[in-house]
């Protein structure tokens, strides 16, 4: 029992270790501005990774989330720019734009989910396809360039990313709330139980009268909605979107989920683990930038090692069982 607990806590111990390392290497690491920045930037991947945890736990996968975020950012900016002359440069316009992002996310997630559950195509294939489609659409909408938010709107919208309660900016707050709700849903609701049951054996779930297809579909819709939410927080940061927005986010999100101890083959999901995974990836990036120990260009290599290590630990846990 104790050994298993150690494996369970592995990612958390790694996170604490990284934190101490960061503090030792550069005092600037502990500055509230730095930590706030790290957390806020984690929020995009973090929100997506929370949704991804549900999708992976039920035995699915979504490769399209990075492109989806870029596409949603694109249509959100276009919608706001189009609305600004009609409704004026005010919060109303911003809110309408936000709802475009959220509704677009839900619709995109529904398309992915419906293709997987109703048309019965492999999740990998479906989302590989929609990944290309979303990416291409945003490039086309931007005509190969960049879509920029109208500067009057940008001034109003800016605080959504940069403002908050002291150093605790809105993205951090939203990320934290989503993480708590996500963990709660996975651990304590029928939905979470069903997601885990489907991932461990969908035939058993079906024979137990679980609506397998509806639950699967819901995980993709939930992920889409969270991508929409991430987009809402991302747009005010740069105020623009292009064909290179959100590139490789899907892999970072999947990596965070795996590092957090969710099984890639499904059946066991840990939202809190995913949050830890996201923070580990962000901290590595931040520490490499702050310390001269290793070139920041090796960031990807170190993250890669961590991912492989996490999976090896998972396997040892299974052997210990």
């Amino acid at each position: 029992m104790k050994r298993v607990d150690l494996h369970l806590l592995g990612p958390l111990i790694a996170l604490v270790g990284l934190f101490i390392l960061g503090a030792l290497l550069n005092p600037a690491f502990l500055a509230p501005a730095n930590l706030s920045n790290v957390l806020a930037r984690s929020a995009f991947i973090g929100l997506i990774a929370i949704g991804m945890t549900f999708v992976i736990t039920q035995g699915g996968l979504d490769l399209s989330v990075g492109s989806m975020a870029a596409f949603l950012a694109g249509i959100t900016i276009m919608a706001m720019n189009w609305l600004a002359p009609i409704t004026g440069a005010n919060w109303g316009t911003i809110l309408l734009g936000m709802s475009v992002a959220l509704a677009g996310g839900i619709a995109s997630g529904y398309v992915n989910g419906a293709l997987v559950t109703k048309a019965r195509i492999e999740a990998f294939i479906v989302t590989l396809g929609t990944m290309g489609i979303f990416r291409s659409l945003v490039t086309w909408l931007a005509d190969g360039g960049t879509l920029s938010l109208d500067s009057s709107l940008r001034a109003i919208y800016r605080p959504v990313y940069f403002g908050g309660i002291g150093w605790v900016t809105w993205p951090i707050i939203v990320f934290a709330i989503a993480a708590i709700l996500g963990e709660w849903a996975m651990r304590h609701t029928r939905f979470g139980r069903h997601v885990e049951a489907i991932g461990s054996n969908d035939r058993v779930a079906r024979y137990s009268a679980v609506d397998v297809e509806r639950t699967r579909l819901l995980t993709y819709v939930l992920l889409g909605a969270l991508v929409g939410l991430a987009t809402i927080l991302y747009v005010p940061r740069l105020g623009s979107a292009s064909g290179s927005t959100g590139v490789l986010w899907e892999l970072e999100a999947i990596a965070a989920v795996i590092i957090g101890g969710t099984a890639l083959k499904g059946g066991r999901g840990r939202v809190w683990g995913t949050v830890v995974g996201v923070l580990i990836l962000s901290l590595i990036d931040n520490i490499l930038n702050l310390a001269d120990l290793v070139s920041p260009y090796l960031n990807g290599a170190i993250q890669g090692v961590i991912i492989v290590l996490a999976v090896v630990l998972q396997r040892e846990k299974r052997a210990a069982d």
Partner: peptide, 26 residues
Amino acid sequence: EAGLLLTKSLTENLTLSALDRFGFRI
């Protein structure tokens, strides 16, 4: 293959078909 989730706990297996009887928050 169709009856029990072999990797899940006895309790989770027991209540899987009847989860709606255990409240929105299980």
